[in-house]
Nucleic acid binder design. Sequence first.
DNA 1: CTGAAAGCGCTTACAG
DNA 2: CTGAAAGCGCTTACAG
Lengths: 463, 463
Amino acid sequence: MDAESAANAGRGARTSGPATPPTSPPVGVTKITSPNGPAEERSAPDELPEAAPIPNGHTGEQSAPDGPGTAQTAIDGLPEASPAPNGLTGEQSAPDAPGTAQTAIDGLAVSVPPTIYDVARAAGVSIASVSRVLNGRRNPRPETRDRVLQAVAELGFIPDGAARALSVRLKEVAGVIVRQPWASKTPEDVFADEDDSLQFPDMINRGIAEAAQRRGFDILVRSVSLDEHDPGGRTLALARKSDGIILHDRVLEPDQLERLARQIPVVTLAGVATPMTANVSSDNPAGMRDLARHLLYDHGYRSISYIGGHVDSPDSIARFRTLAAEVADAGAEFVDGPQWQGNYTAGGGARVMNNLLARRTDLPRAIVCANDQTAIGVLYALERHGISVPGDVAVTGFDDIPVARHLHTQLTTVRQRIRELGETAFEVLYSMINRETPVDRDIVLPTMLIRRQSCGCGEARQP
Amino acid sequence: MDAESAANAGRGARTSGPATPPTSPPVGVTKITSPNGPAEERSAPDELPEAAPIPNGHTGEQSAPDGPGTAQTAIDGLPEASPAPNGLTGEQSAPDAPGTAQTAIDGLAVSVPPTIYDVARAAGVSIASVSRVLNGRRNPRPETRDRVLQAVAELGFIPDGAARALSVRLKEVAGVIVRQPWASKTPEDVFADEDDSLQFPDMINRGIAEAAQRRGFDILVRSVSLDEHDPGGRTLALARKSDGIILHDRVLEPDQLERLARQIPVVTLAGVATPMTANVSSDNPAGMRDLARHLLYDHGYRSISYIGGHVDSPDSIARFRTLAAEVADAGAEFVDGPQWQGNYTAGGGARVMNNLLARRTDLPRAIVCANDQTAIGVLYALERHGISVPGDVAVTGFDDIPVARHLHTQLTTVRQRIRELGETAFEVLYSMINRETPVDRDIVLPTMLIRRQSCGCGEARQP
DNA sequence: CTGAAAGCGCTTACAG
DNA sequence: CTGAAAGCGCTTACAG
């Protein structure tokens, strides 16, 4: 059997319907299968007979709730393999299942994993003892310990997380909700990819995950789009799988937030601390003030505008306010209006500029963007229209994401301690989960002005 | 009470030790608290008295396994609030807990969430009925339905995921293991940030998450570093929280992989399908062949080298082989050797080049990199040494990550359908979880050569 | 030190 | 249509 046919061996076999697929897409994973690569690069070992060893048969058959339950039982090897106390009933083979041993045949069978009862029996001890040696509670007798450990190794036992979670009331999972900026992208959007690129939220998540790992936690990330019909619902759905929730930017309305916080610990990023929630964010006022003064006094720009992020973003609002105040204090002109509303994406920034330029609007001397992503779009639009940055117009960002320094015109921006934002958010959440008294429930991290080319620094301003 | 003191209100209160912190870091989340931002930006509403309404008291007290269990019970509102059948024992207040009502005081208290029993009682029906209306099973009487729904709304009931998972034997969670390239970064590494940037793996994960969402699944991502002492252990730990596992690149040894696959469905990315696992990857041979021929025949380069990724990476090995073969076929020179070993990071690429240049080695006419990240490092090193790309040396990448087109010298590379790789991996895993016959267990996605500047295309080759 | 048993919060046949 | 009960796989006082 050559690789080609081996790869298709599974085809044509009966396929059972998935268990109530939420939004079932055009199903079918059929892809272009290596049109021309050398065979050895994609060979599919397919020793059917002995290739799928069923350590301990006995299929639990998780029949789909509705839909015709389809039984694809593996070869039932050891009938008496699971003498669990609470009488395992063995597989409940669906009535319409003509043949069995199907999953075993296609070689991808996964037998029902062993439980703590299997380990206990194999080791000749009680499940309590197994649990104890596995969790290092009260030192068991060395012999007991060894026997258990051996049984565990032999069976390849992996304790079920759900069962443990239910028992200790701790899942060791933190849910993270991100506002999805890349939802509204159009096919021909030049920045589709760029907006898919590493965002500020991704880096924060990296920080969260890192801190979580130290505590034995994992993170479950879910993104909700701006135009989501029910962000609250999606958030709740994630909450049931987590011990606590971290909310990026502003994903929930205040009332929804309160409801959620009543059920589970909640930490917001860039929001505002409430009696029930904690918050961690960067010092927007200080960051924007430094940037604004640099533009106003160091460069002497007399007219400045601000391209906002999401309309209701606390971060964007804070930045806007500080900038407007600084511009006013300097007696300079603050160019404002609805046409300057962005959405934190490069596409949004480009759109704002294109619209402005189409109307032949006079541009301010400097354009301050809500974040780097937006600035990237602005730079692009300006460049395409032959407008020089920073010669004709200065442009700045906020965040200092990695790409910022690789742009053709390096971006002047305000650096946030992005990962630290995430790490801190997790630590606060962790303490809340442990019902500890949080050290502080409104944490603000410092920022730093990063001067590069786009504001007019770095190189002699060329016309 | 001003914002400053409000923020510190919680301090000084007794803090209980966290439950067996794995690798306890210098604890304490104390951060720089807004050095100079206006107060209203970080105000912490702190209406102590009525701020923390305890809907239905009764604290479950998840006392830390070892360590002195510290009880921080909330105000016990409704003593008889949980008439659960299996006799809830109420809080097991730890012996050393002098006072209670502590979490309520600091305002961040989270009462024990209601269970299905609370809902059933409130609605005057059985828990079975609650479960049925919530899951839309067998249409309940409209009245029953309404009462349940109302009770759910009133109590803010969120069914516990662990309990559900245990019962239906499905967690609706897919575990994803990534090989962590950013582990070995040194402080002074110029590319630390760049390597922190959106990587190929991140984009794949985005695809996985997207596909997962359609099926009601969430993904749990864990990264293991190359020098991990026990990648298998960390993987198993994640496996207990998941229904299936997706492995990036090559994170497990074949034997570990087999052990894992015997317990739980496994899909590898860029690996090789085995009797127990499925694999999805890009067509490396075709992609590299197109690239190699472009370099060899279109540009006529006669000497080429390859900077590899991780030594044992199947992708890198496949690319290497194809390139070597193509170069040989063309009768050109393939410059090889251990000094050309990279590690998929920009830092790695830069290091290889710096070492080579330090030894004043003659460079080949073209340097093919295992991935874009590596190429970025190479471009950087070359530029610093005043070597012109593509004038003196051509450089190419692989992946076509977003930054590739934003580099000063735009990168010629081989595009992979990155997100699709992830989406496909999830779909295959999903079918395995449902014990379906997979459509194909070795899926290969097509690639596409993207010619930009770094190979010598696009602009007239300047000296 | 160890075992028997209760309990975690759901879902789902099984009988009314 | 609905309720009582069993069962999912662990952990943990509680008694030996």
